[in-house]
Simulated scan of single mutants.
Amino acid sequence: MTDVPRPPRLSPDELTAALTALPLWSGDGGGIRRSVQLPGFPEAIAALVRIAFVAEAMDHHPDVDLRWRTLHLTLVTHSAGGVTELDLELARRVDGLFPG
């Protein structure tokens, strides 16, 4: 198995600019965050499964905290030590599934 090269960590200015295009997300160099509110627990589980398929296809996985009907997502490229373009792309795809 070979290591897949990861994109470089975004600078603070790059991250600030990127977050303006992702208004449902907030954060800093340590990770970007969004919560997704669903009608109930089964719907939250179903939403998590939808996100899981997208994340698996990208080979880039969010940190997830599920509380009853709310998913709290944190995106960070651990191998890069911060937020990268991979995190922004996953955020865009999550927004496509759950526009807010």
Rank of each mutant, 00 (worst) to 15 (best):
M1L: 14
M1Y: 13
T2L: 11
T2P: 06
T2V: 10
D3W: 06
P5H: 07
R6E: 13
R6L: 13
R6G: 08
P8G: 08
P8Q: 03
P8L: 06
R9A: 03
R9T: 08
L10E: 00
S11R: 08
P12Y: 03
D13R: 12
E14H: 02
E14K: 00
E14D: 03
L15T: 03
L15K: 01
T16E: 15
A17S: 05
A18E: 14
L19H: 14
T20Y: 11
A21Q: 14
L22E: 06
L22D: 14
W25S: 01
W25L: 02
W25D: 00
S26C: 11
G27E: 02
G27M: 03
D28M: 08
D28N: 13
G29A: 14
G31H: 09
I32V: 12
I32K: 04
I32C: 06
R33H: 12
R33A: 12
R33M: 13
R33F: 12
S35G: 12
S35M: 13
S35L: 11
V36H: 06
V36F: 10
Q37D: 13
Q37T: 09
L38C: 06
L38N: 00
P39D: 12
P39R: 12
P39T: 12
P39N: 09
G40I: 13
F41I: 09
P42V: 15
E43G: 08
E43P: 10
I45W: 15
A46L: 14
A47W: 01
L48N: 15
L48K: 10
V49H: 14
V49T: 11
V49I: 14
V49W: 11
V49C: 13
V49K: 15
R50V: 09
R50K: 15
A52C: 10
A52K: 14
F53I: 02
F53Y: 11
V54F: 04
E56R: 13
A57F: 00
A57N: 06
M58N: 06
M58P: 04
M58Y: 11
P62L: 00
P62N: 08
P62D: 02
D63A: 11
D63T: 08
L66A: 03
L66V: 13
R67V: 07
R69D: 12
R69M: 07
T70K: 10
T70Y: 00
L71F: 04
L71E: 05
L71D: 09
H72S: 10
L73N: 05
T74E: 14
T74G: 05
T74K: 12
L75Q: 05
L75T: 07
V76I: 14
V76F: 01
V76T: 15
T77S: 08
H78V: 12
S79D: 13
S79V: 04
A80T: 02
A80Y: 08
G81R: 08
G82M: 06
E85R: 07
L86C: 04
D87M: 02
D87C: 05
L88M: 12
E89Q: 12
E89K: 13
L90N: 00
A91W: 00
R93P: 06
V94A: 09
V94P: 04
V94T: 06
V94H: 09
D95W: 01
D95Q: 04
D95P: 02
G96Q: 09
L97M: 11
L97T: 10
F98S: 01
F98Y: 04
P99Q: 11
P99C: 07
G100I: 05
G100C: 09
